[in-house]
Design a protein around this nucleic acid. Structure first.
Lengths: 169, 169
DNA sequence: CATATCTCAGATATACTGATATTT
DNA sequence: CAAATATCAGTATATCTGAGATAT
């Protein structure tokens, strides 16, 4: 981790100013995209720090949560990749690792013999619940954002996600 | 690239519902953090697709832009790492690559002989301007977000960044 | 001597390409 | 035969740790 002290100015406001000086176009979009990238660095750093003691990465934690939320604790690997927006080989790799850790096991799909299900184990259920406590205590890397602010943020990003074709609804 | 079709529901709204069912705490923060992570995937995918023809990654593009915006087209590597919030060895690596591509060169720091400056070359200046055009045309992966929506998004994220200690201002 | 800056070697995580086996 | 599912081999990128060289 890098507990870097805060800058004494907003680097994105500064970048936007420079962007306009150069006449580079769409400065509002640049600022929004850069904001998203930087916010993600902060969230990822905060969450991964909380997950370290459980030997989980963010990607593997997300996979565990997804399985925990599924009706029967199992999902086809392909479906998991779609939902998490990751490459098929990345899911194979993540499930390999979770299986080594005893948090998940592979079981054959009952109807489609091409597909394989990942199923969360009791150990996995226990771990994901403890890891979640730690992530909540770390405030998801958001700092002390109020509930109202978090909701406004979620709503604004939701517009962007819809514009970018993430979902239809 | 993966031109995946949109889901027919908002996966984050669904995750939030499940999160509350399990009684996992801070659902508003979970939704905000997950929104940031997912938005970043969309932006990164859009921008990297636009940068591919220039043989640039997002990280190297950011470094070029930072140099382009500096007063004299050069900055110490350490300062670049701070500004981009990346590990010192990652900057070394990125500058190695940009130097191989002829977009940047290393020059000694005139006052502090420990430090090394990365300086953008004329070829680098030309490339970063052309790459920027492509990124703007790709709308930064934001889809057709209006300027007002982009500004609102930037403002909401700014609150989060301040709460997370990204800057003081 | 302590600190700062950068680099290197080695390890891990993720992603992508292209190929393959199996099943639908 | 075409499409879908998962895997594998190989490559690339980025991150981090720990060590070391050089300079302040």
């Amino acid at each position: 981790m890098s507990p870097k002290r805060p800058l004494r100015f907003d680097p994105i406001a500064e970048a936007r100013r420079q962007w306009e000086v150069r006449g580079w176009g769409a400065p509002a979009s640049m600022a929004a995209a850069t904001s998203i990238m930087r916010a993600q660095q902060l969230v990822l750093a905060g969450v991964e720090a909380a997950l370290r003691e459980f030997d989980l990465t963010f990607a593997r934690y997300e996979a565990l949560v997804l399985l925990r939320f599924s009706r029967e604790g199992r999902l086809p690997l392909g479906k998991m990749g779609e939902r998490l927006m990751v490459h098929p080989t990345s899911i194979t790799n993540a499930i390999d690792r979770l299986e080594e850790q005893g948090l998940v096991r592979r079981v054959p799909h009952p109807e489609d013999r091409r597909a394989i299900l990942a199923e969360i184990t009791p150990v996995g259920v226990d771990l994901v619940e403890r890891a979640t406590q730690a992530v909540v205590e770390a405030e998801f890397g958001l700092g002390d954002l109020s509930e109202a602010e978090a909701d406004r943020l979620t709503r604004e990003i939701r517009k962007m996600r819809r514009a970018a074709g993430d979902f239809e609804d």
